[in-house]
Nucleic acid binder design. Sequence first.
DNA 1: GTTAGCACTCTAGGGGCGCGAGTGCTAATT
DNA 2: AATTAGCACTCGCGCCCCTAGAGTGCTAAC
Lengths: 351, 351
Amino acid sequence: MEPIEGRRREILRIVIDDYIATAEPIGSEAVRERHGLNVSSATVRNEMAALEDMGYLNQPHTSAGRVPTDRGYRVYVDSLVPEETPPPAEQTRLRETLFLQEEPHRAIARVAHALAAGTEYASVVEAPHLHEQVIRHLHLIPLTPRRALIVVVTDAGVFEGKTVELEAATSPDECDRLSQEISRRVAGWRLGDLTVRAMDQVIGEVALYRQVVIEVGRLIGDQIAASSRIHTEGQANILKQPEFRDARRAEPVLSALERHEVVTEILHDGGSVPADSRSAAMKLKPVRITIGAEHRREEMRDTSVVAATYYVGGRPAGELAIVGPTRMRYGRAISLVRFLADTLGEALGRL
Amino acid sequence: MEPIEGRRREILRIVIDDYIATAEPIGSEAVRERHGLNVSSATVRNEMAALEDMGYLNQPHTSAGRVPTDRGYRVYVDSLVPEETPPPAEQTRLRETLFLQEEPHRAIARVAHALAAGTEYASVVEAPHLHEQVIRHLHLIPLTPRRALIVVVTDAGVFEGKTVELEAATSPDECDRLSQEISRRVAGWRLGDLTVRAMDQVIGEVALYRQVVIEVGRLIGDQIAASSRIHTEGQANILKQPEFRDARRAEPVLSALERHEVVTEILHDGGSVPADSRSAAMKLKPVRITIGAEHRREEMRDTSVVAATYYVGGRPAGELAIVGPTRMRYGRAISLVRFLADTLGEALGRL
DNA sequence: GTTAGCACTCTAGGGGCGCGAGTGCTAATT
DNA sequence: AATTAGCACTCGCGCCCCTAGAGTGCTAAC
């Protein structure tokens, strides 16, 4: 695929910028007017015809202006899109609110909100992966003689509770001792390493322990699948987009966003990472973008997703993304996703 | 307002039933055909004209059939609606899945799902109110010398975590003692009674305690406002309804369902409780229904809400509701809401 | 390589028209 | 007095036709 040079490239950028802004097909005359191109509309027409041949533009019908194709958007995000870093005031405001949050799930909710409110699209934020987290404490809280609540505190500050059925009646004091015993032995482990087999080696075959370990293992598995790990916001924003004016178009998308297997897929699938020299030079975390037909899921083919991973303590902790129409303000979306991924990672690291 | 007698009443019921089923205005001939009314369409027309005068029906235009008004639906739900109790198989299935859940928030998620899936509308379920719950244990889990995680276990089985900044450095052992001390003194209290003043009387002025108490108080306040307390599902179902075919109609509704102050209002506002003789006789928990224009919120005027309170240990614990178009299958919605409120209450009571 | 000029294409939007559904009224029937 | 047959009437919906205008591609000149 030959690279697109100077003027033609500029025209592609203008068409896409304008189309993103107006949601209307863009004609040759409109392109010429904007950013005083010193050429006639006929020349622009020739270029646009060429861009159409190359598969970057499309006309809805013969007498209409041009509209970007998914491939056009791809070129755009890979090399044309102007970054729209949020204004410094906004940045500090966001940073401050995030650093104020004491609970991880609060911080996550704030990020989801900021993403949705800042772009008028939908946002999805995933809580830190459990298996990567390192155990700091494990506590058993006696509920009844035969039941206890397991609370695990990890380095990412996320604690999860689950009740466990004990095999023998246990007094609160016994429970405490048991708790400290286990806690001492598993502190420092990655949650993902906490398999029954690994535990057996350290702890031995004491029945009560095993039960607790099994339940913790289950807790991890369950939580990975639990909807509480995913925070979605701003679905209604999608309805504001003119391309989703017809609810029958929007319905599959919103349905997909309610099914958390789909959301997980969206978050992790992350399309190709643009080999963008700018971001490489600036050591920015990469942002993954999936555009329209690039989606695996049929129902997402009218949307684009801008996703990023956030890191806590240098390790990948979770994902966040924006979901909007393919006619998305990519500049804003990319910058915001990148900024909030960084900031969320930092904020969680400090808890 | 005179009560509506025999045939006229029957006709109103038929019109509303049919309209709910088809979403199309119902004509006199269609009414006669259904349930072989032994009268001519002219007679039906007279009755329908009367019902329109009374404000229960409406015609979109002169040459169309009749459509129920909000007042019509009101009469319908108050005295005409046929209960549609879920089939026994369904009931046991739901009951079993709910009783299997070990975590309250899981059970709540299941209920939200069942409500949405069982009706094709949106559902909202609120976690048990905190202030009504009775403290069973309170634990402090040391994180750093100056920070600890508060875990409160209550009778409704809901436990909540929050970190607290301690005023003085505290060793894990100290923390444990402190924890047991406080726990012993507050066990049995209603969370709502856990004010700083009340605590001071029992505990005295020890600084460390105060800080913990203040934080627990804040925890309650925060959680009451926290979005994690509300589980919404099936918003996309609303887009499937023909009256919301136009996304611009649906958008305000979905936006409202994303704002949790609005949802809280919807859940508690609960319109008039029908003085339905049947449900009174059968000792069924009342269901609160708000229809279209009865809503306080402008943006909800095209929807109806069927809400109920669920009880744990005899006390009101939380709310759940279905949100759909005013053209709602009330029979199904009411039965399902009632059944799931009962079952959720029972299930939570057993944890 | 660029541009003016022009014929051409196609959509959006408006007006006119007929169909059909459903009504309300009137007068006859029970 | 209630019911009903008959009928004229209303009005939205879909259809077709038409025009205006936007935007194109092509050609020929620069």
